[in-house]
């Protein structure tokens, strides 16, 4: 089986190469990199604000303010900010019958935003009276290291995942549709070759393309600040999952045209975790079940090592398990479709 798998891989790689898959992958990686380098600014997004107000004080003072996420404790502020490099936190407690304010920042630079917060709080807490609360403020820097991460760089994991999962899905389904169109599967079915290696080899092609693409983008945007070993650990299952989606589409649709609607819906669904990633305050439980959620956070941990590598291992295992299940389902559907199309 291994020999056949390698021979299938060689054949699929050659086919992919002659269909310009490698060129498409490199061009897309360069295009995405150029987008990050020249289109996205270094710092752009409006920061998130997490706020804890002790129950004795009440939350009414900030009611109606947009972009504020209320949390239940100071610890929760720290937890939320752990995943959101561009954010601030404010905790207001009542100590000795006087409000004590803690401002959490991701770096030393409180900047304009910190001053604005202080001003807003002074007004709110004094109920219109100008009282100096300067001494009752405390500033806590949570992640000093985040100051080195540019906004555009936080976008990199999204594009890497898009490339590995989405383009892999698209190219692999096209590969299957071409085979169906040329009825190559019939010749394969009357050979001793097994279906698993036939499909797995295509996933392997997508895997290699995905590693090439991820390496190019990471090198251009993050240089050697990224951890490439961890990047590959998360990219391999991600690409395998993306390939599984391509197999799935190739199994249930007859040709590219008929698969377009399914492809678009899948892409929209898979991109939903991006919203949660860019705006961490939006993270409903269901979104965490979408595999690209695990992929994005796993890739982020690899390309921006400040976040720690725990996500890489955990997410790689989760995505790999999902990929194996998807591959099994797709294989079953593909086999069924083969009989129908023979």
């Amino acid at each position: 089986m291994f020999k056949r798998l390698i021979n299938n891989f060689k054949k699929d790689w050659l086919r992919g190469y002659r269909h310009f898959y490698l060129l498409i992958t490199i061009a897309t990686a360069l295009l995405f990199s150029a987008f990050l380098l020249f289109v996205l600014p270094d710092d752009y997004s409006s920061p998130g604000l997490y706020q804890y107000v002790a129950p004795e004080i009440g939350e009414s003072m900030f009611e109606g303010e947009e972009g504020i996420t209320f949390v239940d404790s100071k610890d929760e502020i720290k937890e939320m900010m752990k995943d959101d490099a561009n954010s601030y936190g404010v905790a207001i407690e009542l100590i000795d019958n006087a409000p004590v304010v803690t401002i959490y920042t991701q770096s030393n630079a409180e900047g304009e935003f910190g001053q604005t917060i202080k001003m807003m709080l002074s007004r709110a807490l004094s109920s219109g009276e100008e009282i100096d609360y300067t001494e009752r403020y405390e500033s806590v820097v949570l992640h000093e290291e985040f100051k080195d991460v540019k906004y555009k760089e936080t976008f990199l994991p999204v594009l890497i995942v898009m490339d590995s999962a989405m383009i892999g899905m698209f190219l692999l389904s096209v590969m299957l549709f071409t085979e169906k169109d040329h009825k190559m599967h019939t010749a394969y079915m009357v050979s001793p070759g097994g279906l698993t290696e036939h499909l797995l080899s295509k996933s392997m092609v997508m895997l290699v393309l995905s590693l090439i693409s991820g390496t190019i983008m990471t090198l251009i945007i993050r240089g050697f600040d990224a951890n490439f070993l961890y990047l590959y650990i998360i990219l391999i299952p991600s690409a395998f999952f993306g390939g599984g989606l391509g197999l799935f589409l190739g199994s249930i649709f007859k040709n590219v045209q008929k698969s377009m609607l399914g492809l678009i819906f899948l892409m929209i669904g898979l991109m939903l975790p991006t919203v949660s990633y860019m705006f961490p305050s939006f993270s409903p439980m269901w979104i965490k079940f979408i595999p690209t959620y695990q992929m994005i956070y796993g890739v982020r941990a690899a390309v921006i090592p400040l976040y720690g590598f725990d996500d890489v291992w955990r997410n790689a295992v989760i995505v790999l398990a999902e990929g194996i299940v998807l591959f099994g389902i797709s294989r079953f559907l593909y086999q069924r479709a083969l009989y129908k199309n023979s």
Partner: peptide, 10 residues
């Protein structure tokens, strides 16, 4: 096969 199936790019 009657339908001549082969990898066209190879």
């Amino acid at each position: 096969f009657e339908f001549p199936n082969a990898y066209k790019k190879l």
